[in-house]
């Protein structure tokens, strides 16, 4: 397993401290190239946000021009009439419930796997580890039939259950690694004080694996927020759709109402970008750590 420490900028800056000051041509060239490259990311987003204020004609005729008027009501229309607000609420519920379930169930299981001896633990752990490797295609067909049979489709559980199940292997794997690295004296001391397993879980394990939990939380929250395939297949009721599927429905419904579409795109992207910029270090670390397992 590879884990990386987030490196603060001051660390990185320090290693350059010995270098001489002054502007060098290569530095200028570097920043010019990098800025142009960064534009590749900001331009489409800027174009998207700007086009929200334009009419269809302006979008067609002068794609680069600034909008001539700033009509903010288009966002309210997309949010309320277009249903983006409802999609956001659905995404929020599904993401938050799955994330809490993953953290709760995952940390309990990780605690047992790391600190308890019991028959079958090796087998169970192997099964969970297998879950890290299984692609979604290996189970979604039968899962779909199963959920049909259980009448779970078109309910929020149809997303919460699989998202939780998909997040558990990673959570258990990561949190177990965190717990394994803790000195066993911590647990023994608590036990000598007469604490039961539940007590130890609550007051020793949970506080100690907070950093691991943050990684798991970020990774599973983003995975659930962005998941598309299952949401497309399991949810047909417009009132329960999450953002990815809802936005797709929105985009086919208003396919020719371009500024409304761009407004919807802007609504769903800008808050994510703001959250990311605020917590970028943690989020980048959580995502990379989660992917590298």
């Amino acid at each position: 397993m590879a884990t990386f420490d987030a490196v603060s900028n001051s660390d990185a800056a320090q290693s350059f401290a010995g270098r001489k000051k002054g502007v060098r041509p290569s530095d200028v060239l570097f920043h010019v190239v990098m800025t142009i490259y960064a534009m590749l990311f900001f331009l489409p987003l800027l174009w998207m946000a700007m086009s929200s204020f334009k009419t269809n004609g302006q979008i067609f005729q002068s794609p680069f021009a600034l909008p001539t008027s700033w009509d903010w009501s288009v966002f309210a229309t997309a949010w309320a009439d277009g249903g983006i607000g409802q999609y956001a609420v659905n995404s929020f519920i599904v993401t938050a419930v799955s994330m809490v379930a993953i953290l709760g169930l995952g940390s309990m299981a990780a605690f047992a796997f790391s600190r308890m001896k019991f028959r079958g633990s090796g087998l169970l752990l192997t099964l969970f580890t297998l879950g890290l490797l299984l692609p979604i295609q290996s189970y979604f067909i039968a899962q779909n039939s199963l959920f049909e049979y259980l009448h779970l489709k078109d309910t929020r559980w149809a997303l919460i259950i699989p998202y939780t199940a998909m997040g558990l292997p990673l959570a258990i794997w990561l949190l177990k690694a965190y717990l394994d690295s803790l000195p066993k004296e911590l647990f023994e001391a608590a036990r000598i004080d007469g604490a039961g397993d539940l007590r130890i879980y609550w007051s020793v394990v949970l506080p100690l694996v907070r950093s691991g939990m943050a990684t798991v939380a970020i990774f599973s929250a983003l995975a659930a927020w962005n998941e598309f395939l299952l949401a497309l297949l399991y949810i047909q009721n417009d009132e329960l759709k999450t953002i990815p599927v809802g936005l797709l429905a929105f985009s086919t419904k208003y396919i020719t109402d371009y500024h409304l579409l761009f407004a919807a795109l802007t609504i769903v992207t800008i808050p994510m970008i703001v959250i990311y910029v605020l917590f970028h270090r943690r989020i980048a670390q959580g995502l990379t750590e989660g992917s590298l397992k």
């Binding site: 609420v89 519920i93 993401t95 938050a96 419930v97 809490v100 929020r156 939990m213 929250a221």
Partner: peptide, 15 residues
């Protein structure tokens, strides 16, 4: 972590 916990709790309430 506290933001995350608060979000989770409120979502449980909503659902």
């Amino acid at each position: 972590a506290s933001v995350v916990a608060a979000l989770g709790a409120s979502a449980l309430l909503i659902s």
